[in-house]
């Protein structure tokens, strides 16, 4: 969905996120900016309706307003010039914020190999855009309804097996996907950047709700991230912390769906 936010659009750099709140009783949720248009003064967010707030967002109609939108937040992606081959891996809605990053790396003179993964062909997004941008595109679906049946890690393994000279991997998707990508790249010492969607409240460094350990040091996703050296990230702790409010989240979703 696209929001009018001229000041945020003017400042947005790939890798950054916003925090939004729909209404007066709403919670603050972080969403990575998928794209921005400085001419129209808009930012684009691609949202998967997984809980109460995202369901409510998905129900908004063109012309509706939301109460609060704050950004751009977090550190921008570090785009390096002429590295060589950069493999970008997008899983599910993570494909959306990956796009401006891939575009940045391409413009900086790198070879881009894209691996996109989704549960099935209906959930695959931005395929055309990535096809135009990438030197090579590999599509993976869990059920084989498009591209090759299997996981993004199978495709990455394939590139490693064929001795592709990979200089960098950028992976954005569900935590569990990023965890398995990193488990593979660790074995081959491939520098890997991941973008984390931690639980956040303020998104300005004030509360530490989004904290994680990176290389043994406490880091706040909202201020020091959201991108980190994937090889240093403690994914198990993140996965576990993400379950803190599972029951409360389900209750709010059930109540919302019942109307």
């Amino acid at each position: 969905m696209t929001f009018s936010a001229p000041e945020i659009a003017a400042k947005h750099q790939p890798g950054q996120f916003i925090i939004l709140r729909i209404d007066a009783v709403g919670e603050r949720i972080p969403l990575t900016i998928a794209d921005s248009d400085t001419k129209d003064g808009t930012i684009t967010l691609i949202v998967q309706a997984v809980g109460k707030t995202t369901q409510q967002l998905a129900g908004l109609k063109p012309g509706d307003n939301i109460q609060d939108l704050s950004g751009p937040l977090g550190m921008p992606t570090q785009i390096e010039k002429n590295l060589g081959t950069v493999v970008v891996i997008g899983g599910g809605v993570g494909t959306a914020p990956l796009y401006p990053i891939a575009r940045g790396f391409k413009a900086a003179g790198n070879k881009i190999i894209t691996i996109l993964g989704a549960r099935n062909k209906d959930l695959l997004i931005l395929q055309k855009e990535f096809e135009d941008l990438s030197d090579e595109l590999i599509v993976m679906t869990d059920d084989g309804s498009l591209g090759t049946k299997g996981l993004v890690t199978n495709a990455l393994q394939g590139l490693i097996d064929r001795k592709e000279d990979i200089q960098k991997v950028v992976a954005i998707g569900p935590l569990i996907m990023m965890k398995f990508v990193v488990e593979l790249t660790k074995q081959h010492d491939l520098p890997t950047v991941v973008s984390l969607n931690s639980m956040m409240i303020d998104g300005t460094g004030m509360c530490g709700g989004c904290r994680l350990k990176v290389g043994g040091q406490t880091r706040f996703t909202c201020v020091h991230g959201p991108e980190f050296d994937g090889l240093q990230v403690d994914f198990d702790t993140l996965l576990r912390r993400g379950n803190t409010y599972k029951h409360e989240e389900q209750c709010r979703l059930d109540k919302f769906l019942k109307g």
């Binding site: 009783v25 709403g26 919670e27 603050r28 509360c207």
Partner: peptide
């Protein structure tokens, strides 16, 4: 899980009104 900074705990309660039944913030 459930180790908070005081800022997080108090922000959830004071700013986000998590103690009220209709608040979305848990």
């Amino acid at each position: 899980n459930c180790v908070y900074s005081a800022n997080e705990y108090l922000t959830r309660i004071n700013l986000m009104k998590a103690y009220l039944p209709d608040a979305d913030t848990p």
